[in-house]
Simulated scan of single mutants.
Amino acid sequence: MTPAKLLTKIGQVFPDADPADIQRQLDGYAGPERLRVHLAILKLCDEDRRDSPLHYVDTACQDHRDVLMWAESPQQLRPDWFSLSVTDRAKVVKADRQQYARWLAR
């Protein structure tokens, strides 16, 4: 992922907002895997129809892995995950990857 892709996604998720303002809000998270986390936050905002990324920025500042998991692997958080067969788990992982790739590609 590139900073240009991040700007594209900001425009898609927040079409009526000032991109620089959204970027400033995202910059509230400056920890590990910064670009990846910023994209995950945008995906979560897109799904939740939030008007600001601040909720997820705050969460990422506490533990960035939470927003990564919610955005990139939501089905792996299923309550029945540990009762799934290895084959079914592999299908879920593949489906999660595909849904995230579709969101990134749009």
Rank of each mutant, 00 (worst) to 15 (best):
D16W: 01
D16P: 00
D18H: 06
P19Y: 01
P19F: 03
A20Y: 01
D21P: 00
I22G: 07
I22S: 07
I22E: 03
Q23S: 06
Q23V: 00
R24N: 12
R24L: 12
Q25F: 00
Q25C: 09
L26N: 05
G28P: 06
G28L: 01
G28R: 02
A30W: 06
A30E: 04
A30M: 04
P32A: 15
P32M: 11
P32N: 13
P32Y: 11
P32C: 05
E33M: 13
E33D: 12
R34V: 01
R36T: 14
R36H: 10
V37R: 07
V37Y: 07
H38R: 06
A40Y: 04
A40W: 03
A40V: 03
I41D: 01
I41W: 05
L42N: 04
K43R: 15
L44P: 08
L44N: 05
D46P: 00
D46E: 07
D46Y: 12
D46R: 04
E47N: 08
E47I: 08
E47L: 07
E47C: 04
E47G: 05
D51R: 06
D51I: 02
D51K: 05
S52C: 03
S52V: 01
S52A: 11
P53Q: 10
P53D: 07
P53Y: 09
L54Y: 03
L54W: 04
H55S: 10
H55Y: 13
Y56Q: 08
Y56W: 15
Y56I: 00
V57E: 07
T59W: 07
A60L: 09
A60P: 08
A60T: 03
C61L: 03
C61W: 01
Q62L: 11
D63R: 14
D63C: 08
D63P: 07
H64G: 13
R65A: 14
R65V: 09
R65Q: 13
R65C: 09
R65N: 14
V67F: 09
L68M: 15
L68W: 09
M69E: 13
M69K: 14
W70K: 15
W70T: 05
A71D: 05
A71H: 08
A71F: 07
E72M: 13
S73V: 00
S73A: 12
S73I: 01
Q75V: 02
Q76H: 01
L77E: 12
L77H: 13
R78Y: 02
R78S: 14
P79I: 02
P79Q: 04
P79A: 02
W81S: 08
W81P: 05
F82C: 12
F82Q: 15
F82V: 11
S83P: 02
S83H: 14
L84R: 15
L84G: 12
L84E: 10
S85E: 10
S85V: 08
S85T: 15
S85N: 11
V86F: 12
D88A: 15
D88V: 10
R89A: 14
R89E: 09
R89I: 11
R89Q: 14
A90Y: 03
V92D: 04
V93K: 08
K94C: 11
A95R: 14
A95G: 04
R97V: 03
R97L: 09
R97S: 09
R97T: 05
Q98G: 06
Q98E: 15
Q99N: 13
Q99I: 09
Q99V: 13
Q99A: 15
R102T: 12
W103L: 09
W103S: 10
W103F: 10
W103M: 05
W103G: 08
L104F: 06
L104D: 03
